[in-house]
Amino acid sequence: MSAIEDLITELGRLPGVGRKTAQRLAYHLLKTPPGEARQLSRAIDRVVDEVHACSTCGNLSDSDPCEFCSDARRDGAVLCVVEEASDITAVEKSGHFDGVYHVLGGRLSPLDGMGPDDLNITALLTRLRGGVREVILATNPSVEGEATATYLHRLLRDLEGVRITRLARGLPVGGDLEYADGVTIAEAFTGRRDM
């Protein structure tokens, strides 16, 4: 296989990249100054060598424990359970949460061969033995995310002194009621609160 073919095949393995896009990217890289292309390849090398799963929470980071687990200003007694490390970025953007995280590394999905043993659950149970006050189940509101939250809830509900919560569902902020879909409005009604 030629060097170009090799690169196209590798790029084509990336999610959301088809053969055509892979070709475009490959020829783009060939046209850019060699320094820039090398920068990309070095960046890839670096993440592969330096980024690992945090041994406490499973977050992907170049330090262990990760920047959240080692931050003394964060409240270690409140745990936010998410499906993927990338979900942390979304929660952090809100600037609203100052507890710590726990990354499951996926969700229950028998059709994809994902069972409880494939999720980072044992480490979660270990963490809960030491002074955790609240566990926020922040898996996605999808069929699989809900089943994962239900599974975890049943597993954790008998733990003494630990409050188990689930993120609320409802209307997006800044959205018009008129343009929200029926299901979202129905959820918002179910989850309405006193004022």
Partner: peptide
């Protein structure tokens, strides 16, 4: 059983 019940709930 625990896994099945997680799916049964939904």
């Amino acid at each position: 059983r625990a896994q099945l019940e997680a799916w049964s709930a939904g």
